[in-house]
Write a protein that binds this DNA or RNA. Sequence first.
RNA 1: AUUAUUCUUGUA
Length: 280
Amino acid sequence: LITWNTLLYALGKAGELQDAYELFGELKAKGLKPDGFTYNAVINIVGSMGLVEEACILFSAMKEAGCKPDVYVYSTLVNRLSKAGYIDRAWTLFREMKEQGCEPNLVTYNTVISGLGKAGEMDEARNLLQEMKALGFDMDVITYNSMMDGLRRADQVDEALTLFQEMKDANVVADRVTYHILITGLCQESRVEEAWELFQEMREKKFVADLILYNILIAGLCRAGQVSRGETLMRQMRSDGCVPDVVTYNTVIGGLGDFGRYEDARKLYIEMKERGCSPD
RNA sequence: AUUAUUCUUGUA
């Protein structure tokens, strides 16, 4: 069974979702009894295929088969439900798990906090954070990132920055994702100078910017009316091994157009094609 | 310990 579970997990991780799901059918056909690991893997796989209802059916089947869901299975399904936009059902399941005596751990709390943030329910997220702390859990980098991203989505970038400071004070080390979230939020609000400062701080910490972050920054600069700076950054990103893609070019071409710099826009369009990037 | 959690960019 462990072999099957391992294979199932590997297929799921590799994105071979169909095969994985078929493997589950095969396993049952062989008369093997799926355990918590099996169900967890398969619920996660089915959920990531966008079939949440199917995942819920599997969850029920699991319980009917006398297999008690553990903290992993609950957390997985809570995650899948909130990813599918059913934050209320995720919340109900979270409550059910507590009622069943299955203690949520830090991952479970992070999952629900992130789900609430995506649903725009930051008040609930803050309450849950308090509950979590009261139970003695310390916020980790994922907790902070989830909270900050929720705040960013709710246009509460200053609150996110405050949390960033708290994070530093608590000696929780910011990672690449932390910087992405904050830089995205600042760009969103056209606060490009602050975004730029954080970008520098990020690089001092030896994090390498990726294509997406460059695109976010370039779009931020263009939106803030600093197209030339955006263009400069587009030239510099190659030194980080990032090749401008169709999104980068569209962003800068659009920015140039907004400022009436049609000739520059045209030149860039030609350059883009010369560099082998085809317009979409 | 074979399993779960955070960021994913451009547009009319």
